[in-house]
Amino acid sequence: MLSCAEFLSEFGDYLEHSAEPGLRARLEEHLHECKTCCVIVDSTRKTIQIVTDSDCFNLPGTLGESIVTEVMGRVRQKS
């Protein structure tokens, strides 16, 4: 069976549901026996959800248009 260290270095594809069947079986065998790694898988999935849903790096309201104006002003000067 995989050790926890091996599990933690290999479970990236499992998180994204893209692990190939053989690896997935070994990972699930480990999860069946290891509560700590179950917690880590669950909380990492939730982390991804929270980060993906976050608006923390969104472009503020009017700044988008001012960037377009500034960039295109300089582009048209060059051309």
């Binding site: 969104n58 472009l59 988008g64 960037i67 377009v68 960039v71 295109m72 582009v75 048209r76 051309s79």
Partner: peptide, 24 residues
């Protein structure tokens, strides 16, 4: 081909994602 309006449309399309990546 030198069409600046087309380039402007590309800027508008990708402004938000580029800004978000760079802000991070």
């Amino acid at each position: 081909s030198g069409n600046n309006d087309a380039f402007e449309e590309l800027v508008r399309r990708h402004n938000r994602r580029i800004f978000g990546t760079l802000a991070g």
